[in-house]
Every structure is written in structure tokens, then in C-alpha cells.
Computed example of a mutant assay.
Amino acid sequence: MAENRSFEDLVAEGAAVPTEGWDFSWFEGRASEARPSWGYARSAGERLAGAGAVLDVQTGGGEVLDHALSGAEPRRPVSVAATEGWPPNVAKAAALLRPRGVVVVAAPDDAPLPFADEAFDLVLSRHPVRPYWAEIARVLRPGGTYFAQHVGPASVFELVEHFLGPQPESVRGARDPERERAGAEAAGLEVAGLRAERLRMEFHDIAAVVHFLRKVIWMVPGFTAEAYEPQLRALHERIVREGPFVAHSTRHLFDVRKPGH
């Protein structure tokens, strides 16, 4: 059991787990996160079944798109492409998705999408760094849809602020869904649906915290176990003394349409 293991052993374990892709199965029994009620991968699979040409933006290791494509069988799209900016994930996504006929393209998260105007009737994304609305509007065909789950404001900030201290409101309010709605509308898109939820997370040992912060690198930029040893040790002692550390993630679901036929 984790509570019988030393701080040093747990930190070393969390620091050694590979971070590629978006497979979170290692966390089973060590950390948990409630899932949004809308079931993004299942809902995306339903959208895929009715689409012809599809783009998945910032696909990570391709796991979510792979799951969604499974849900779309046998009525899967004619063509599917995916972009990813982090080289280890590009390789992982290509290995997983190319056997399904998906074209995986290495593309920086903040660069224009490497596709022609009006190339897709469905654009998907799960947890993009930020929505590049002008590019989404450009590559969508008239009548096409952007369907995506975004990270919301101040997500897991109980953990972030344990390491970084209180954050200014400008940081806590980033990723605000209403601000993102305004960005979509400014790009000429119509927001047909926007739902938001706040979801409970629990970290049962410090290894899970270390691995999470190595994997979700924007939470505590530049995180290493060595640099944040005092905060890690304090949190370890708190978990041993009080039980799981509780935080809350925020998520919102966009259903956006490009006007036209």
C-alpha cells in the first residue's frame, strides 16, 4: 500500500512513469476524476458516424479519437486527419491511428492548420491548449461543426496553488467559456450549445501527484520533483495524515456551427 511506502520511493515511482499520450490507466487506484455527464468520446463517435471529412485537433496520443472511431463503426467517415504538436505524441498517435487510415500530421499548437479552406465538415478537439477560432472557421465547410471538450477556468487550482501560491484573477479566469464563446462568434461561428461542469478529483498518494504534474505540463510550468521537493513533502504528509487530496477540474463542451448550407 502507498501509505506504507516512503516519500522518496513514491516520488521516484511517479517520476519514472512514461508521460506520452493521454492514457491515464496508470492512475487507477491512485487518483480519480469524475467524468463530465455528456461523455465526450461517445458523443464524438455519434458525430463521426454522420460525417464525411473529419479533423481532430491536438489529438495527443490519439487514444480519444481511436475510441470515438470505434463508436462510429460501421458508419465511419470517408477521411480522417489529426494534428499534434508534441513529437512523442505524434509518434504514438501515428502508430495507433494510421492502421485505421487516419492521416496524422505534426503541427504546432499555435500555428495555422496545414489544410485547405473548407476541407472538413467536422472538427473535433479534446482539451486543446486554446481554440484557434479563425483557423477552425477557415477549415470548416459551410454548415460544418466544431465539437470539442475544453478545459475550463481554474481547473485543478487547489493543486496548482499548493505549488505556486495564490494566482491572480487574470490567471484563474483564463479559459473562461463565455470569453471563448465570444471568440467563436467573432470568427463568424454560431455557438449552438455550451455546457460546463465542475468535477471532483482525488489524489491518493504523492506518486500520482508527481506523475500528473509531469504529464499535464501546463499546470505547474517547469515542474520537477527536485525543484518542488518541499511542497511535495508537505503534501505527502498531508495525504498520509488526512487522506486523499481533493481538487476540482472544470470542463466545458462546445457545439459550434459554421453558417451556410
Rank of each mutant, 00 (worst) to 15 (best):
V171W: 07
G50C: 01
R5G: 04
N89W: 00
S32N: 07
A154W: 05
R76L: 10
S6F: 03
P230N: 11
G60K: 02
A82Y: 00
A44T: 10
V171Q: 11
R5V: 02
E28I: 09
D66G: 12
L96S: 04
R130F: 14
L194F: 04
F7V: 07
A187T: 10
V90G: 00
L253W: 13
F27C: 14
E13P: 03
F147G: 06
E180S: 13
A192G: 13
A34L: 13
R35C: 12
T145W: 10
A208S: 15
G85E: 00
N4P: 07
S125Q: 04
R5F: 05
A227I: 07
V17F: 15
F163S: 07
Y40K: 02
T224W: 09
R30H: 10
E20F: 01
A182T: 14
V90A: 00
P166Q: 12
D66S: 15
H211K: 10
A15C: 10
S155V: 06
G143N: 03
G62T: 02
E158P: 07
V123N: 08
T224C: 11
W26G: 13
R30I: 05
E197F: 12
P166V: 09
R181T: 13
D205G: 15
L235R: 10
R76M: 06
S70E: 15
R141H: 03
A82H: 00
H236V: 04
S70W: 14
A184G: 13
A53L: 05
F115Q: 09
A247W: 05
T145I: 06
A134H: 15
P108F: 06
R257S: 08
D255I: 08
L122W: 02
L65R: 00
F120C: 01
Y146L: 04
S79E: 14
A208G: 08
A187H: 13
S79V: 07
A82M: 01
K92E: 07
Y40G: 03
P112W: 06
L194V: 05
H204Y: 10
G101V: 08
S170G: 03
H261T: 12
W38V: 01
V129Q: 08
L235P: 07
G260V: 05
L159E: 02
E3A: 14
H204D: 10
G61V: 04
F212M: 11
E63I: 00
G193I: 01
P131R: 08
R179A: 15
G39F: 11
A111P: 08
G85M: 02
V246N: 06
F7H: 12
A68Y: 05
L164N: 10
Q167D: 04
P166S: 09
G173Y: 09
Y40R: 04
L113A: 03
E190I: 06
P221S: 00
P230S: 01
D176P: 05
V256Y: 02
L140R: 11
E135T: 08
A12V: 12
A116H: 14
H261C: 03
F115A: 05
A208D: 03
S37D: 13
G260S: 01
L253M: 09
V240H: 11
L140Q: 09
D117W: 09
V210N: 12
I217M: 08
S43Q: 15
F115I: 02
V151H: 07
R126V: 03
V151Q: 12
A107C: 14
S43V: 14
A182C: 09
R238Y: 13
A116Y: 04
V210Y: 11
E202C: 11
I136V: 15
G85T: 00
V156Q: 13
A116F: 03
V240S: 09
W22Y: 15
R35V: 12
H261K: 11
A93R: 01
